[in-house]
Design a protein around this nucleic acid. Structure first.
Lengths: 246, 246
DNA sequence: CCTTGACTCTCACGCAACGTGAGGTTGTAG
DNA sequence: CTACAACCTCACGTTGCGTGAGAGTCAAGG
């Protein structure tokens, strides 16, 4: 009977955990040895071993020590519910992490061919991501990200280089008094639409969200040299086209 | 100039974080205000605000405060690498969490129609899961889990109820001196194979892993009343069959 | 001038689950 | 008798703040 009792080191070795962990479980009252030797050594009985195995099984499943204590005290028929709740929590955590991961990937693709990236650059892109997360649904963002991957970095850079040129041209046209119904304006509008299409991929919901964003976020819009005057000009120059914007 | 300086509360409100967080960043030297008022109030300059925005951008991406400090000090061209390393770490974390989640789901399906589950039950199943994770690759485990979902809980329970019956029958047959080449033994072997097939789904790698597991883990095998005598009997009774086992 | 209330300051504990020594005692093998 | 392994009890460190406690500061109202 006495020979079946284990000391910390023995129990630790048998179960594959550290002595410190057993000390900890004793400290917090999760697993206190049934007996102590005269010298104060912890002596664990077979019953203690069984309890430890229960603890380790639950820990293996990712439960916290408090929850484990709860499970060991309370009647068993709540256990299934606890497990399902735990699964739910885990899935929420995974969703959060995946969101984070998508942000990082968006950032990485944004910097795909820039070699020297400053913290300021990162901050700027993060601002854009933050704003976009407010106006686009997670589905849309994933769709955008996937399209970026598909069409390749060269095309993206091409489009992103084209935008400021086009904006400058439109601004010049307005300044020179070009009317929205002139062929010149029509062609600018067509180029505009092409660029928008390259972003939305023809998804009208994304186009709608994009519109809402630029209307609600003049600060973001101004960073790209956009304002209401430009939008109105393009809108007027835009004839009846496949419902892609507006 | 002096009017542009912000006090903690103002800075906190502008950036959407807590005063305590600013105190904390000051404590650890991540963001110390450029100036203090005579009364000791923290006064943040526009430059401090910019630094804070950088910090918050990086925090938004899931970086730790130490890493953020590192990013703010060190030259920018390491930033891209840091981001990619971070993505990798996140993906590893997600993989871990998904592994945990799969364990929990396996547990949940195992208890799908049991209403009262004890911690002892959970411990037993966890032991099985642990053992299986040693012998089956993650791919195999996922395949097994998916098949369990497909074929439904009734069929699973049916199979699991059939096993002990069959094992008992085989044991009886051996005890009664039934020879492996008798029709009786042949039929037992056929039923055996059917049950094995229900588990492996005809995947020879899974069948192989299963075999290895029961050979290496006599402790697990014995819990189901299996031993070498049984295995040899079935093996001998088994005629040439579609290579599904052995 | 004094008080009130909003804002600020500096400690300092708490959380989750142990890791990692520090410094001292016990048990056993040579 | 003496190593040496194994045990004991503190107690701090980790991550990023939350949450008071107790006290000083500043502008406005009585």
């Amino acid at each position: 009977m006495a020979g079946t009792e284990l000391r910390v080191g023995e129990l630790a070795q048998q179960t594959g955990i550290s002595v410190r962990t057993l000390h900890h479980y004793d400290e917090i009252g999760l697993l206190s040895p049934s007996r102590r030797s005269e010298a104060g050594y912890r002596l664990y009985t077979p019953n203690d071993l069984v309890r430890l195995q229960h603890i380790l099984a639950l820990r293996y499943l990712g439960f916290g020590l408090d929850e484990i204590r709860h499970c060991l005290i309370h009647p068993d028929y709540t256990l299934v519910r606890v497990i399902h709740l735990h699964i739910q929590r885990m899935q929420e955590q995974i969703a959060m992490q995946q969101l984070l991961c998508r942000r990082l990937e968006a950032l990485a693709t944004a910097f795909e061919q820039t070699d020297s990236v400053s913290v300021t650059d990162v901050t700027a892109i993060v601002e854009v991501i933050r704003t976009m997360e407010q106006y686009f649904t997670p589905d849309m963002l994933q769709e955008l990200e996937e399209r970026r991957k598909q069409i390749g970095p060269e095309r993206i850079q091409q489009v992103e280089a084209e935008w400021p040129r086009l904006i400058a041209e439109v601004r010049t046209a307005i300044a020179e008094g070009v009317t929205p119904d002139s062929p010149m304006a029509q062609q600018l509008a067509r180029r505009w639409m092409d660029l928008v299409h390259a972003f939305t991929g023809g998804n009208p919901q994304i186009a709608q969200a994009l519109n809402t964003m630029y209307q609600q976020e003049p600060a973001t819009a101004q960073r790209y040299g956009l304002d209401d005057t430009l939008f109105r000009f393009i809108e007027q120059a835009m004839p009846a086209t496949p419902a892609d914007e507006q």
